[in-house]
Design a protein around this nucleic acid. Structure first.
Lengths: 165, 165
DNA sequence: ATCCCTGCAAAGGGTTTGCAGACGC
DNA sequence: GCGTCTGCAAACCCTTTGCAGGGAT
């Protein structure tokens, strides 16, 4: 989904309403961060968001504010937070997106999204079975993407050749 | 699965063979850490493993060695590593265990294991569909366990009473 | 004897915190 | 004007690294 003005208006209204409801303040920083996030179409980490705000937009925010705002946006479901193995959280906008999960290439770190209705079934079944009120989940599959599979094969051939020398 | 001597012998042999195969050294530290892990039946983090080794067993290892050995054990599939949201990895022994996933209570942090064959199906289907050679996955569900659901209800009642005063 | 592995402590990376000043309400 | 948010930098936590000495092969 590309960035478009209408979507951003909706999102801004949701955030605005959320802040009002929680008696939090509607600051320029919070809305600028929200906007920057909704201009992006991929997964990103807090640091790159921070850098882009200062560099591209010449907008000076502190890391503290970036983290604080990300937390707020996660709370009101406008942003999703992921841990793809490393100790660095990844984020993505979530308004208007279909619920989805991720496949990550362990070689090139590419992230692909997928969707399977069976996850929902498992969620509700396990919630009932174990008496949990399930709020969310995280499903990541790790493997080697098509490109990297080829690269690996090429590398093996090269090594074999080198050994023949 | 409780700790038993036979299982531990098998596990020790696997680790030993793995080290030999990789031309790594069979040190006391490595086997002591393996033993301590296989005496445990729950999830743990590197720090608590480190503490137990020095405190309970009076065995002085350094954190560096604990981390190093955990990596080795993950590589040879005797230990599984998880990220349950926080920036602190959780580990569990995995030999002889059925593949399983986790439900985590967001209030009390309790971890419950579950198993669903549909995960396997999704894995192989998505691998084929997206041309990924999938090696492993991580599925965590987050929610509120039965106990904590009751606690929350009690808290709400208390608050309501307090407001009546 | 070799040189990998260890212990130690310091560095590292991501995130959180404490405080003084700024600004939304 | 009050009280929350912000920026800044230091603190924090978990993990990794560098180095010198010790033990497995």
């Amino acid at each position: 989904m590309a960035f478009n003005k209408e979507t951003f208006e909706e999102v801004k209204n949701i955030f605005s309403a959320y802040l009002e409801n929680k008696e939090l303040r509607r600051t320029t920083e919070r809305f600028t961060i929200l906007e920057e996030i909704y201009k992006r179409n991929d997964h990103f980490d807090a640091e790159s968001l921070f850098e882009d705000l200062s560099r591209k937009k010449n907008f000076n925010v502190s890391r503290a504010t970036v983290y604080n705002t990300l937390d707020l946006l996660v709370s009101c479901d406008l942003v999703k937070k992921h841990q793809f193995g490393k100790n660095q959280a990844q984020f993505e906008k979530s308004y208007g997106y279909k619920q989805h999960d991720h496949i990550i290439c362990v070689d090139c770190k590419k992230v692909v999204e997928f969707c399977d209705p069976r996850i929902q079934q498992i969620k509700s079944m396990m919630g009932d079975l174990l008496n949990f009120k399930i709020t969310h989940h995280s499903l990541n599959m790790y493997g080697i993407c098509g490109n990297c599979q080829m690269k690996r094969e090429l590398d093996i051939k090269k090594e074999a050749k080198a050994e023949l020398v």
